[in-house]
């Protein structure tokens, strides 16, 4: 009906006739992203190294972690034993590499269980609100009210402490915290108008949760989960001190520190406890840095300058 112009006012003005368009600013989407930085890659590298060691510990040229070599007891670092040996002559590097399996399985496995259950429920509660939210939220408070360490100790003491059981118990214990984080993040998006728009278009609840909410919640969840892994690695250490981690002599970082700290070894050979503690410290730092940088990277800047 308008005689001169096309129906809709193009935002691209025809000053393009003169060789330039107002709409085509070279805003490369990559240019707006923050750089991850060297520290991030160093930290990611360390995590990858630990994971690699844990997976391929069997095929790496390492002595049996439980082999007691009485000709080299309490030896310092040497070419033969890169990190030295403990009071039973076991190779420390080998014990730490094999021990990382326990830390990683418990850490990542536990968080995976927590995310799968707590995350799903958190999304649902945050989006649905109302009675669903009230019930789930109340339940999470009840569970959080138990001191988690105490609850884990009780369960481990009565049920046993194989790696699988330990992972399952810690995973269940992490559900309420993950539920709460994801519920809160979901709630901050659930009332945004794009969710209302999706409902108005007839999208199902499943679709809204997966397509609209999950991508927005995921970065915060991922970052929190990595910190959660770090916390669980420390928790394993605490359990070992109470003799409630995996049964000795199976190495775990907690077990090695525990052994290194008993029998006055801390005075005579502090290196035994130092190495696993150092590994733990580096893994914790790396997980925190990676989680933090990833979150910052995926934080979408809403609105232009």
């Amino acid at each position: 009906m308008p005689e001169i112009a096309p129906a809709a006012t193009p935002e691209r003005p025809s000053a393009a006739v003169l060789g330039r368009r107002a709409d085509d600013q070279p805003e490369s989407p990559n240019g707006t992203r923050r750089k991850l930085g060297l520290l991030f890659w160093l930290c990611l590298g360390f995590i990858a190294l630990v994971v690699f060691g844990a997976i391929f510990a069997n095929v790496l040229p390492l002595p049996n972690p439980n082999l007691q070599n009485y000709s080299a007891v309490d030896a310092g670092p040497s070419l033969h034993h890169l990190l030295g040996t403990d009071d039973l002559g076991r190779d420390l590097l080998s014990r730490i590499v094999f021990g990382s399996r326990v830390s990683l399985v418990v850490g990542f496995g536990g968080i995976a269980i927590g995310l799968a259950i707590g995350g799903t429920l958190g999304l649902l509660a945050g989006y649905k609100g109302g009675a669903v939210d009230t019930v789930l939220n109340g339940a999470s408070f009840v569970i959080l009210a138990f001191p988690p360490l105490l609850a884990i100790i009780v369960v481990v003491a009565f049920w046993g402490r194989s790696l699988g059981k330990l992972t399952l118990i810690i995973g269940i214990a992490s559900i309420p915290s993950l539920f709460r984080v994801i519920r809160a993040t979901t709630m901050s998006y659930a009332n945004r108008e794009f969710v209302v728009a999706a409902r108005a278009m007839g999208a199902s609840t499943r679709r809204i949760l997966l397509r609209e909410l999950l991508p927005n919640v995921a970065p915060a969840a991922l970052s929190f989960a990595l910190i959660g892994v770090a916390l669980i690695v420390v928790l394993e250490g605490s359990l070992a001190f109470l003799g409630l981690s995996v049964a000795l002599p199976t190495p775990s970082w907690g077990n090695i520190i525990y052994e290194g700290a008993s029998n006055n070894l801390l005075q005579t050979d502090p290196l035994i406890a130092l190495w696993p503690a150092l590994a733990m410290f580096l893994l914790l730092t790396s997980l925190n840095v990676v989680g933090d940088r990833l979150r910052a990277r995926f934080d979408v800047r809403e609105g232009a300058l």
């Binding site: 945004r192 108008e193 794009f194 209302v196 728009a197 108005a200 278009m201 397509r211 609209e212 991508p215 927005n216 979408v300 809403e302 609105g303």
Partner: peptide, 16 residues
């Protein structure tokens, strides 16, 4: 029956 909302930023999913 479709709607257009007031807040241009909040009415679009920032990740898509």
């Amino acid at each position: 029956l479709q709607m257009v909302f007031q807040d241009p930023i909040s009415s679009l999913n920032p990740r898509r």
